[in-house]
Nucleic acid binder design. Structure first.
Lengths: 205, 205
DNA sequence: ACCTGAACACCGTTCAAGT
DNA sequence: ACCTGAACACCGTTCAAGT
């Protein structure tokens, strides 16, 4: 039998990882400091040592996590840049549906805010226009990406069992099997079409 | 001095109204059954008589409220129909920023779901195409509307005081005075431009 | 430096009881 | 039918204390 190995030390990263797992699996409503402590084999109060502002700091960190993306600069023109950021942003949000409400609602901070600024710079240098117009384009693209993921997640919980202790506030993960075949691919295709429409129309904005 | 008049009887409508007021003013996090009871001059437990599923039912009702819009059928073609729904949807969401997280996250139900279906029918009869394509267009438009309001609300809390007991999860209403002049009009114009881009590109989707 | 235990003020929800 | 009071299990957070 294996010796009881010394427990992995707590860390901001491990806390966030565990919190995402709980939120995705049971819903944001059930993400509790005490439950989070249990998942990490630690008393809830230990978390405050790594996230001094407590649950508020945790929520901020989760939003930042699913909202921070990086994209290598490309040389395919501003539309290619925009596509890359849109795809990366959508993928990051879809990975953790449980914290989508935070991602759509909290003002961008830290690395997430830096990513937004980098996106604007990349668009500008790829020929989109002056910084102000690039920043405006980023906002439009972010709106489309965030909204698309929102309706996508909403639909995944659409045909929820009518009589049930549902999860509230957001993401129940054991989503009922889709109402149609391959809804993920369908959603991806729809996302692509709307994105292209936006990219066609953006410059005249 | 006025005689102590008999208290207005509790009702689903009054409960929802008070809940929206609390969520908009203090944030969703502070919307509590007990606080809601106080606002209604009633014990918290009385609310359960009108909303049997308790807080879960309240959240559903709030999401439905800010998400239900009606638009008179017009004869200006499908683009005019789409514009009307987009404007109405954005206005309804902006009216109650405190519950935006619910609106973006809860699957549409009841009257909200009916409104979505009516939007699709109006688009189809206004010449957009067959029902399936109209439904797809509605999803794209809803995504854009919801995402636009999300970034708009996010930005209203952007320059939040760095050292402060912030509200969590969403909508603090005493938003810090804008970082630029007339951000609301700017946001409205940006919304318009993105919407027109989408309307130009939609049919080819 | 990092974690625990006990404590405090507050939750959501139930249930029997009042009117 | 509508509301209250007391009770229960559970929150977030503090603080002194342990190691």
């Amino acid at each position: 039998m294996p010796a009881k190995r010394p427990p992995v030390p707590l860390s901001r990263e491990r806390i966030i990882e565990a919190a995402l797992h709980i939120a995705d699996g049971q819903g944001l409503r059930r993400l509790t400091m005490r439950r989070l402590g249990d998942a990490l084999q630690v008393e809830a109060m230990a978390i405050y040592h790594h996230l001094p502002r407590g649950k508020e700091a945790l929520m901020d960190a989760l939003a930042e996590h699913v909202t921070t993306v990086t994209v290598e600069p490309s040389d395919g023109g501003w539309r290619e840049v925009a596509r890359a950021w849109a795809h990366a942003g959508r993928a990051a949000l879809l990975e953790h549906p449980g914290v989508l409400a935070l991602a759509l609602t909290k003002p961008p901070q830290g690395t997430a805010l830096m990513a937004i600024r980098e996106q604007a710079e990349q668009l500008a240098t790829a020929g989109f226009g002056d910084p102000a117009r690039a920043a405006q384009a980023v906002r439009t693209l972010r709106a489309y990406v965030m909204g698309s993921v929102a309706v996508e997640i909403q639909r995944s919980g659409w045909a929820a069992p009518p009589e049930e202790a549902q999860d509230e506030q957001d993401g129940r993960l054991p989503a009922p099997a889709a109402t149609r075949a391959e809804p993920a691919e369908e959603a991806a295709a729809a996302f692509e079409r709307g994105l292209e429409a936006l990219l066609r129309g953006l410059p005249s904005s």
